[in-house]
Design a protein around this nucleic acid. Structure first.
Lengths: 210, 210
DNA sequence: GGTTTGCGTGTACAGTTGTACACTATGGTC
DNA sequence: GACCATAGTGTACAACTGTACACGCAAACC
């Protein structure tokens, strides 16, 4: 059989998957009991403590784990350069695809972004901040919005990321993964992001409306 | 003693307040048990069923109740006309004030917006849609963004409301109700909204970046 | 003023919960 | 091969859970 560390990691992943399964069924992670998650992972309740202190600890580790996965995705997406003129459109449809392919990840992150404990919320927010920073780097690299100060560029990207993130639960709630509703959702979100970037393109030190 | 309906309404409110108290302590509503909320309300567990079917039912009624309160607030705020040039600034600081004065309302709504059950999420989203529609009416009344189509105006207001709503949990997480962090938060959110409105002001049928 | 209605009580019970404690079994180390 | 170290097991128990059921009692109604 495998060595010891690998086997431990395996049951650790079983526990995490069991927790995600619970979330996938429409339940909130805070209502998950140690016994329930252990049962689903196929281990005895007390084995849980070999890996996590409590459910919040598990949730925090889940955020870390999913963050790794999402960062990896982002790296891949950023390699395939797209036409800057259709940047929003392309990124958005790629994102929606990815959300559906990893549905439960986003259900968990969405429900915990505002619905988790203080620590979990903080962890997810800091992850969104990371994505916003990466987006800012990309925009600089593509020579977009070059006239903006770094501070203002950060505002633009954080608003962008936050808008996408907080729309994601709505995306997940759509009755089907294709159809009129999805198109409507994508169009709405696309136009909202276009608004933001249009505003950014016209930003000047002293705006008209304050 | 009071008549019967009033007394029933009183324990109903006790139950709702007890649930909010639970949320105020940093707990998630989905981890609230019928026995716990009944104990806090000072009634016997089975009395709960005279008012609600289960905790989700209570949560849905809580959303309705808080919506009434917030709509009332909105009406009051809209009566005191402010200078359109400082519309964002003024509305924002009024909003922050109100959030702190009714902290637990917003903690509950924020945590349930994405963290609640499907029904609760839908209820809150529809409430946000209402606020977005009201904002659109106000903007029309003030002759702002008059060149926009109704459809695009709706996008602007929904983005505005969603941005404020999804920032609210972060506002609630600030360590104090006054200080550098609050100013920083308000400035960031203000600039983000300015971006949106600046984009809206420059919106034309065919935007540069799509 | 007798009857009905229905809100809140009290008891009961089976299922679930967290977690302590003693254990087994097996991989890793010498 | 003898020896730990430790991941997972099994048992145990007190606390908590949802909810069924019968009841009391005061308000509402005729």
């Amino acid at each position: 059989m495998n060595n010891r560390q690998e086997r431990k990691l395996l049951t650790r992943q079983s526990l995490m998957n069991a927790a995600l399964q619970w979330v996938e069924e429409g339940q909130h992670i805070s209502s998950l009991s140690i016994r329930e998650v252990a049962k689903r992972a196929g281990v005895v309740p007390t084995a849980f403590y070999r890996h996590f202190n409590d459910v919040e600890d598990l949730a925090l580790n889940l955020v870390d784990e999913l963050s790794k996965v999402l960062r990896q995705l982002m790296r891949e997406v950023r390699q395939q350069r797209t036409d800057p003129r259709s940047l929003i459109q392309d990124s958005l449809s790629q994102y929606c695809d990815y959300v559906f392919r990893h549905r439960v990840f986003f259900v968990f992150l969405s429900q915990s972004m505002t619905g988790g404990t203080a620590n979990v919320r903080r962890a997810i927010r800091s992850e969104l901040q990371y994505f916003a920073n990466e987006l800012a780097l990309d925009l600089r690299r593509l020579n977009l919005l070059g006239q903006l100060s770094q501070d203002m560029l950060d505002n633009v990207t954080l608003l962008t990321i936050n808008t996408v993130a907080s729309s994601t639960m709505e995306l997940l709630d759509l009755p089907s993964q294709q159809g009129a509703e999805l198109l409507q959702f994508q169009n709405r979100l696309r136009r909202q992001l276009q608004l933001v970037f249009l505003g950014a393109a016209h930003w000047a030190p002293k705006p008209l409306v304050s």
